[in-house]
Simulated scan of single mutants.
Amino acid sequence: MKKIYLLLAVLFIQSNVFSQMEEDGWYLSFGVNAINNLGTQSPINSPDDWYFNSVPATLSAEFNWAGNFSIEPSLSYNQIKSGKSLDGGQLDKDYDYIALDTHVKYYFGKFLLPKSNRIELYANAGLGFFHIDETNISANLGGGILFWLSDKKNIALRAQTISKFAFNHPKSGFDNNHFLYNLQLVFKMN
């Protein structure tokens, strides 16, 4: 009986997704990022200690394959300067931060804001690779908001938060759990 309820729920969700399906498309985005790797569980703890240095760039490409679902690989670069605090300790040299992430996104804003044509909310989950002092792999969870700057939906501004949970957290030194924030311009390619 539970399998029947599960099957009905999946069919209901799938019918809602496909009823709202839009044209498949590619989106390219670029912007800036900030890192919060303070060794706390709060995504907003000590904002003055976030890392936003050098050229904090983020590049990504997103493919919308089924209306509310898309996939996005992204590349982020930042730098953590000496003298800053990292996981409670002072740094004696500069460190580069590099992250490669792939996320599946689910856009659910139409369900919460059905009359809004310009605001889209989404949740994302995926895997990532990142390097500060060593290399680690992470499971990622996050979300964001997309604000279309035109009715044609060809350019947008996106704010996104990603929680990166390191696989080898206890032994990873600086390369452990952290938050990655992005602010990007998004361009529709087709």
Rank of each mutant, 00 (worst) to 15 (best):
F12C: 15
S15N: 14
N16W: 13
V17D: 06
V17P: 03
F18N: 15
S19L: 09
S19E: 08
E22W: 06
E22H: 08
E22N: 11
W26K: 01
L28T: 07
L28Y: 09
S29P: 01
F30W: 15
F30G: 09
V32D: 08
V32R: 05
A34S: 06
N36L: 07
G39F: 02
G39H: 06
Q41A: 13
Q41G: 13
I44D: 06
N45S: 13
N45D: 11
N45F: 15
S46P: 11
D48L: 14
D48G: 08
Y51I: 00
Y51K: 07
N53Y: 04
S54R: 12
V55K: 12
A57C: 09
A57Y: 05
T58L: 10
L59M: 11
L59F: 15
S60M: 09
E62P: 02
F63D: 02
F63C: 01
F63N: 04
F63H: 00
N64T: 12
W65A: 12
A66Y: 03
A66L: 11
G67R: 01
N68W: 07
F69P: 01
F69S: 08
P73W: 02
S74Y: 01
S76P: 03
Y77C: 09
Y77E: 05
N78D: 02
K84H: 15
D87P: 06
G88Y: 13
D92P: 05
D92T: 15
Y95H: 12
Y97Q: 03
A99K: 02
L100G: 03
D101T: 00
D101N: 10
H103D: 07
H103V: 11
V104C: 15
F108I: 08
F108H: 08
G109C: 04
K110Q: 14
L112H: 13
N117V: 06
I119S: 12
E120F: 09
Y122G: 04
Y122I: 07
A123I: 12
A125I: 07
F130V: 04
H131Q: 15
H131E: 11
I132N: 00
D133L: 06
D133H: 00
E134M: 08
E134G: 10
N136A: 06
N136S: 02
I137Q: 02
A139I: 13
A139E: 14
N140P: 06
L141H: 03
G142Q: 00
